[in-house]
Design a protein around this nucleic acid. Structure first.
Lengths: 334, 334
DNA sequence: TTGTAAGCGTTATCAC
DNA sequence: GTGATAACGCTTACAA
């Protein structure tokens, strides 16, 4: 378990440590002969450079820290994929951490990440107070994904939730719906822009909006539908705040004897793998998650390379994915 | 962006660097007065110790490396939660990486993790060749989750898939089923023990086994069912290799006009969040995922502390979760 | 092209 | 209790 160091390699190859360092970093100013000798010695010893010692000595970091607020959410997996792709491509390593959506734990995770002196930090939908983010930003470049911020030194990458909900409403209107309700995500992340988008889209078509309080879970979606049924005034289409909620809506409707989409159309938001299941086949709004990650990494690396100092605020365009839960109204009566 | 060092804190507090170091590590042999002064100076400067310099100087690591083969799989999220809980509790930091189930990328991820000289490495369902794992194990403690191994220096934590499938078969038999088919996971991870468990359980009840080739996706499950229907010989119950497959099975059955569980009972494997959705409500086999993570971390930390050298091989007991997709056979005819 | 030597931010070992 | 000072494994001027 005792790993060889650069000195061991140098001794074995019969050269100085500095030369080994040059070879390891692929410097061109090394004779082919020495290079080969060093490489062979390293190979024989099973040597690979010590990342921490390297970054300590060079006063540079090739590490990007990533804090994922919730690993259970597949949304973040794709964002991390995007980050990883760009980072790897540019010779950076990712170190990941999670805070489980709890401020105290996230705060600790943040400190831990910072103790590695990363070149940059990507925070995915963090729930820590803004002050903590500001403090982190004093120490390294920070990009926020899925959370907006006015902090001067902080970049942001977000989904254009207003536009996403507008897409859903447009789709339903074009099918002929007029009584379209929105099941709202409450205080949840991104719920506000989605609600605004819904209201604006309804207004632009001269339709009466109907916002029903709900949450980001399937149980909440089902509950909201039961409330609607009790009220005796079911809309012809429902736009949920996310896919989970939409699945709850569908099952409550079916339990009450309604068919989707024949009697009621349903649209989700997020295009999770759940929506793609043939058993669900949900019409929904897709967010370019992988792109979120790529852009976040690029924003960070631009700052690292000193190419930019002004904050950048990206708002990405979501898209509509039509599957089997939407149809013209009254299709059931036919 | 220039972070304060221990020397800065020492200067500001009017003490030596060594004393700051003692305070930072919570040494008891420091006067209250000095301790307070140091802590205040650190606070004012926003100082926090440099993890890499620290581990370099102390020749110890408080980092555990984790390679997640696939971030998209929620299974791993819970394993990581378990790892994180134990690690944090014992003062260790996690650094995470992913290889996307591709050997070449996993290999790189492994190298990157190793370059941080972690105290231990947890590999979650890795797909790299065994030789790579052996090489890693020469450099640090390694624990494998979701993959077995005979390597001497490597610990393993696994689900007892044989037992899991036996539980499913027992449940169906106790409901009165005798014609029970298994949709097999092919060459997928853990498919073999599950198949063995199925065959053994059927044999022990004197029932004729029926293994149908399939895969770990909902499309494959649907395809397999269509094959069964074409053959004109539908079993009364189906045990899928995992939850996704089971959902495919259910939708294909329903499309063909059969009801679940009235006409056919279906059991999944994994107890993913999908299975818990009310829209699906799948009877399935639960793996103690969080426990996997906890045990893996503990195995690693035992080695780190030098408490154990012999490999440990944990085989955890899965459990049956009964929901709405199983019922006595012929319930549909009633 | 190669080697020497001075750090990088810590901890650890001694003295005092 | 507290403070010098030598490591830790590497990079980086600067010299040769």
């Amino acid at each position: 378990m005792v790993r060889p160091t650069m000195d061991d390699v140098a001794a074995r190859a019969g050269v100085s440590r500095a030369l080994v360092s040059l070879v390891m970093r692929g410097s061109p100013r090394v004779s082919e002969q020495r290079r080969a000798a060093v490489l062979r010695a390293a190979e024989e010893l099973g040597y690979s450079p010590h990342a921490m010692a390297r970054s300590l000595a060079s006063r540079t970091s090739h590490v990007l820290g990533v804090m994922v607020s919730d690993l259970h959410n597949a949304f973040f997996a794709e964002v991390v994929d995007g980050l990883d792709a760009v980072a790897t491509e540019q010779g950076f390593d990712l170190i990941l951490n999670t805070g489980g959506r709890r401020p105290a734990r996230e705060r600790r995770a943040l400190r831990s990440l910072l103790s590695f002196r990363p070149a940059g930090l990507a925070l995915l939908s963090p729930v820590v107070p803004s002050a903590d983010i500001a403090r982190a930003a004093e120490q390294t470049s920070v990009v926020l994904v899925g959370r907006s911020s006015r902090l001067a030194g902080v970049d942001t990458v977000n989904d254009d939730g207003e536009r996403g909900l507008a897409l859903a409403v447009e789709h339903l209107v074009s099918l002929g719906h007029r009584r379209i309700a929105h099941l709202d995500g409450g205080g949840g992340s991104q719920a506000a822009p989605r609600r605004r988008g819904y209201l604006a889209a309804m207004a632009s078509h001269g339709l009466a909006p109907r916002v029903v309080a709900s949450e980001y879970t399937d149980a909440a979606g089902a509950r909201a539908v039961r409330g609607l049924l009790d009220g005796g005034d079911l809309p012809s289409a429902i736009v949920s705040c996310n896919d989970f909620n939409a699945v709850g809506v569908i099952s409550a409707l079916e339990e009450a004897g309604f068919r989707v989409p024949a009697d009621v159309s349903v649209v989700g938001y997020d295009n999770t793998s759940l929506a793609a299941l043939r058993h669900v086949s949900l019409t929904t709004i897709d967010q370019p998650r992988n792109e979120f990650g790529r852009l976040a990494a690029e924003a960070l690396l631009q700052r690292v390379r000193g190419e930019r100092a002004e904050p950048v605020r990206r708002l990405l365009r979501p898209s509509l994915v039509v599957r089997s839960t939407t149809a013209p109204p009254g299709a059931g009566r036919a």
